[in-house]
Each structure stands twice: as structure tokens, then as C-alpha cells.
Amino acid sequence: MKRVYICSRFHADENHTKEENIHRAFFACAVALERGYAPFAPHLIYPNCLDDDDPQERSIGLAAGNAWLAACDELWQWGATVSEGMAAEIRLAQELNIPVRIYNSIGIPKEKWNGVKLADEVGYTGNGD
């Protein structure tokens, strides 16, 4: 089973609440599991045992996430908008030659954006169909 690192927004922005972002990360993990991957989303774990508002504890969480990223087979950027933290994770994946796959927030791969099939169409699986 391939390991996939879920890279998605955590903090709220002008368009999405923190709760919406957490929901999207859980959805990304569910999609990965359905497709036969073993997902890891550090922003769903570490903020529960570290204070993300404390710079020292945030640094520890980021370092732990990077250690997991280095052990993954792929990084999935989940959502078109990239935060500063996501950008750092993507750069690290590229430096480590870990493939980066880009999905929108409902799981459509970038190569299918504006394509013929939509996520709600019969027969769309999100696996390149």
C-alpha cells in the first residue's frame, strides 16, 4: 500500500473556516483510503497534542510532519489554494523527488479540471476515468 501525505489548508482564511479545512482533510484521507492508499495528514493529529499558536511547539509539529513526508510515496495537494505551510511541504516533496499530485477540494485531479466528466456524473471515479 502506497503512503500518501495529505497537504491541505489548516488555518482559516477569507474563504474557509478552520472546521471546513479540517473536514476537507478528513475527506482527502477518505478518498485516499478508497483508492488503496495509506494517507497521513499531520495537521489532523499534531494540533491536538501541540499548541499550534506557540512557535516552538508549531516548529516541533512541522518537523515531525516533515519526517513523515520523507517516508511517503506521494504528496497530494488538496485544494487549489496553497498556504505558506503547504508551499513548504510541496517544496520539500520536490527536493526529495516525491511525486506531487494536485486535486481540487472534491477530489478531482488537476488533469481533469475543466474536463468533460464531473464528479457527480455517472461513471466518474476520480481515478483518471
Score class of each variant (00 low, 15 high):
Thr81His: 14
Tyr124Glu: 08
Ala71Phe: 10
Ala88Asn: 11
Val100Lys: 07
Thr81Asn: 14
Lys112Tyr: 00
His16Asn: 14
Leu92Glu: 05
Lys18Asp: 07
Tyr5Thr: 07
Asp52Tyr: 10
Phe40Lys: 01
Leu50Pro: 09
Leu50His: 10
Arg24Glu: 05
Gly61Asn: 08
Trp113Ser: 02
Gly126Asn: 09
Leu69Ser: 01
Phe27Gln: 08
Arg24Val: 00
Ala80Val: 10
Asn97Pro: 05
His23Asp: 14
Cys72Tyr: 03
Leu50Phe: 13
Ile45Leu: 15
Ile22Val: 15
Met1Val: 13
Asn48Val: 02
Ile102Thr: 13
Gln94Asn: 13
Val82Phe: 00
Gly79Phe: 05
Ile90Tyr: 01
Glu84Phe: 14
Ile98Met: 05
Gly107Met: 02
Gln56Met: 12
Glu19His: 03
Gly126Pro: 05
Gly65Trp: 03
Leu96Glu: 11
Ile108Trp: 07
Phe10Arg: 01
Asn104Val: 06
Glu20Asn: 04
Tyr124Pro: 07
Phe40Trp: 12
Asn21Lys: 10
Arg24Pro: 03
Gly36Tyr: 12
Ser59Met: 13
Asn114Cys: 03
Gly65Val: 01
Met86Val: 12
Thr125Ser: 12
Trp113Phe: 06
Pro99Trp: 14
His23Leu: 10
Lys2Phe: 03
Pro99Asn: 13
Trp76Ile: 02
Pro55Lys: 14
Arg91Ser: 13
Gly128Ala: 10
Gly65Tyr: 02
Leu75Ala: 00
Glu95Pro: 02
Val122Ile: 12
Arg91Trp: 04
Val116Cys: 05
Ala38His: 15
Glu57Leu: 11
Leu69Ala: 00
Glu34His: 14
Asp129Phe: 00
Val82Pro: 04
Thr125Glu: 03
Arg101Leu: 09
Lys2Glu: 04
Val116Lys: 07
Gly61Lys: 06
Ile98Asn: 05
Trp76Lys: 07
Ser105Arg: 03
Asn66Ala: 13
Ala38Val: 15
Gly128Leu: 06
